[in-house]
Amino acid sequence: MRDLALQAAGVLAIAVALMHGVIAERRVFPGARIEPGWTRRLLRMVWQASTVDWVVVGALLIAAPGLDSPTARQWIVGAAVVIYGYAAAGNAMATRGRHVGWVLMAVVVALALAGL
């Protein structure tokens, strides 16, 4: 059951990350007026860096049960809890709780902890 919780956390983590990236490219950046151009490019890459990071964390959560290392499992879960927990808290504060993103990220944290 613990393995299934970790793998579910990983799948959800990847789904949240991909939604984050797609929403940015379709809704946030097309309407954003950011000058100069290099600042716009930098902000876009910083935004998408978190997307890539979250996908990698999701992949690690999926892979963790197959590593046969309790220490690796603990470190992966710990990293996921920090990364997704911080993102969930930031999203909840920034949107005053009116965005589903923080809830989904909090579920990733809960599932990851259940997989310890």
Score class of each variant (00 low, 15 high):
1 M>T: 03
1 M>L: 04
3 D>G: 10
3 D>M: 02
7 Q>K: 15
9 A>V: 03
9 A>G: 11
12 L>A: 09
12 L>C: 06
12 L>K: 04
14 I>Q: 04
14 I>W: 06
15 A>C: 12
15 A>W: 08
16 V>W: 06
18 L>D: 04
21 G>R: 00
27 R>L: 13
27 R>T: 10
28 V>M: 13
28 V>P: 03
29 F>A: 07
29 F>R: 02
32 A>Q: 08
34 I>R: 01
35 E>Y: 08
36 P>M: 06
37 G>L: 14
37 G>C: 05
38 W>E: 13
38 W>P: 01
38 W>I: 11
38 W>N: 06
41 R>L: 12
42 L>E: 06
44 R>A: 07
46 V>R: 01
46 V>K: 00
47 W>H: 14
48 Q>S: 11
48 Q>Y: 03
50 S>H: 12
51 T>D: 02
52 V>Q: 03
53 D>S: 10
53 D>F: 07
53 D>Y: 08
54 W>L: 12
55 V>R: 04
55 V>M: 11
56 V>N: 04
57 V>M: 08
59 A>T: 08
60 L>C: 14
61 L>G: 02
62 I>L: 15
62 I>T: 00
63 A>C: 02
65 P>C: 08
66 G>L: 13
66 G>W: 15
67 L>F: 07
72 A>K: 01
73 R>Q: 10
74 Q>K: 10
75 W>T: 08
77 V>G: 01
77 V>Q: 05
79 A>W: 10
79 A>H: 02
80 A>Y: 01
80 A>E: 01
81 V>Y: 00
82 V>S: 07
83 I>C: 07
86 Y>M: 11
87 A>D: 14
88 A>R: 05
88 A>N: 08
88 A>E: 11
90 G>P: 09
92 A>Q: 15
93 M>R: 15
94 A>I: 03
94 A>C: 02
94 A>H: 13
96 R>S: 09
96 R>I: 03
96 R>V: 08
96 R>Q: 13
97 G>I: 07
99 H>Q: 09
99 H>D: 15
99 H>F: 11
100 V>G: 12
100 V>H: 10
100 V>S: 13
101 G>F: 14
101 G>Y: 15
104 L>E: 11
104 L>R: 09
105 M>C: 11
106 A>P: 02
107 V>K: 06
108 V>I: 13
108 V>C: 05
110 A>N: 01
112 A>P: 02
114 A>S: 10
115 G>K: 05
116 L>F: 12
116 L>A: 13
